[in-house]
Design a protein around this nucleic acid. Sequence first.
DNA 1: CTGAAAGCGCTTACAG
DNA 2: CTGAAAGCGCTTACAG
Lengths: 341, 341
Amino acid sequence: MKHKATSFDIAYKAGVSQSTVSRALRNSPLVNEETRKKVQAIAKELNYKVDKNASNLRSQHTGTLALLLFEDPTMDDSLINPFFLSMLGSITRAAARKGYDLLVSFQQLSEDWHADYEDASKADGIILLGYGDYTDYEEKLIKLHEQGTHFVRYGAVAEGQPGVSFGCDNFHGGYLATKHLIELGRTKFAFLGGADDSCPEFWSRYQGHCKALEEAGLEIRKDCQVNAISTEESGFNAAKQLMELDCEFDAVMGASDMIAIGGMRAFQEHGLKIPEQVAVVGFDDIPISHFTNPPLTTIQQNTKLAGEMLVEALVNLIHDIEVKASLTPAKLVVRKSCGCA
Amino acid sequence: MKHKATSFDIAYKAGVSQSTVSRALRNSPLVNEETRKKVQAIAKELNYKVDKNASNLRSQHTGTLALLLFEDPTMDDSLINPFFLSMLGSITRAAARKGYDLLVSFQQLSEDWHADYEDASKADGIILLGYGDYTDYEEKLIKLHEQGTHFVRYGAVAEGQPGVSFGCDNFHGGYLATKHLIELGRTKFAFLGGADDSCPEFWSRYQGHCKALEEAGLEIRKDCQVNAISTEESGFNAAKQLMELDCEFDAVMGASDMIAIGGMRAFQEHGLKIPEQVAVVGFDDIPISHFTNPPLTTIQQNTKLAGEMLVEALVNLIHDIEVKASLTPAKLVVRKSCGCA
DNA sequence: CTGAAAGCGCTTACAG
DNA sequence: CTGAAAGCGCTTACAG
């Protein structure tokens, strides 16, 4: 590669000082209009670009945000949770709109990630995605918070969490989905997915589910809840387990779309008709849920909004503007698996 | 945030010079074992992390790779081409394995992206993804190449392209898919997707498709090819157009899975049975194709391999090791839409 | 409005 | 094996 142009080269060509070049390029009001134009023209001609490392080093900020995605280490290399992927898309764009670059990193649950980013001055702040298992991370989150690292997370939102959290209104989503099924006349519900505090998001969904049941005077049958993590296979296995239990059901809520989709496969392999014999709803509204057979009724998380909120909050945090946790609305998307559309 | 530790702080605490700290931290063989241990212990204690901006500035490389994803500006914010997403996953991991960070950026086709990355010394090299329309970018690619920028791209691989390109063996994939349908007894083929050099990847697939037809002595009916871009909607529209043509068909190849999936919807809405009346194959093997109704027979692109090759090639390029373009194998994945499994 | 100078926190010849 | 010094390419007080 040829010699890269520096601000000194431009200064020389323009007959001004290097300081003036620096100012002109950043549109400082201190610099004369004509000088600015001349400098910018020469910069363009020389294909000059400010050296980020130098400017970041000097000004002590990076102009980049780090996105840390957490995943189960068991997952196949190319199989990222589709929901995260759509968040990734909206976060990338939101960051770009705010003028930030995005550093993306997939973290295994075991790695010692906690200090790698902002401390290494690679990023001004961190976005954390995929902490289903919040409790496992609590300690690290607290440490991050103590260090004064700027970070926001997306996931379960609860009282007393360190840092700023955003998340979908999981409780209301679980409520909405279940209520919809009840209105369609279903009465015997099963739930596929973890329902305890080891997976706070699923738990909130489950609690919303239970609330709808209660309101309708329907029995909450704890034994019709089967644990599952958010994969098709886990949903499939959970559904098989459910069918072996002594538990009649005409409606099933999956704690996520992937679980619901795996569940549908198990039911269908078992000869159960969806939605006639079993109504199924999921949660997330990942793209796949349009295309399943039957298409999956689900709760949409507004990933676009969430991505924007996350980025905006983080940028505010970086600028020491106060920010508070909030919930993104959950929206029912009715398709055929619930027996309605 | 508290005062961040620098190498001088460590030097002071360890009673050595700052140069020695720097060396010790990078495991230089020049430094005494004991000194090294002491320095590293103190660094850990102070939660010290090398300032990337400073070290990059000094050593003139960044340790990061930039991934530029090109997309149609018409697409919805959260709807990234699922195929790219899976490439993204495997590239991120491959980069991490090689010790590089990954900067991700979505580019609109209109933007002046070409010099923004390596020139700004944000990245040592660039990975380009999503140039379906190679011809539109030729000029920019040439410019990048001339500048000596390190880059690799994934997409159509052709003679005389600037830089290093990787891609799926699209021709063979188109051939395989079509041959499979022929062996199942289909004789009247239609093709959904662009079939000219404005979209070189689809074109190669089409040519492979035609070769299989020729080999089998089947007629190539140019009028049964309908243009489409890689979205469900475009596939849907193309299929509707096809049905309005005076063109009988019992087998349809979609230039991509999204096209095939949209096509299936159109056929089914029109009352055609898949695969009984129309066999359908796609291309890409995106996750959705497992879950369509019927599940889609398709050609798998090995995204994991591709991601690894891309990163490895780019890293070699950065170290001035020669690298040449190559193709990733195409593999037939038989599911139900072809009427076989 | 402009310039000379300092300095961000490292790495790396150079000298010992 | 270690240290003193230079310098990567900027930004930003400071002085005019």
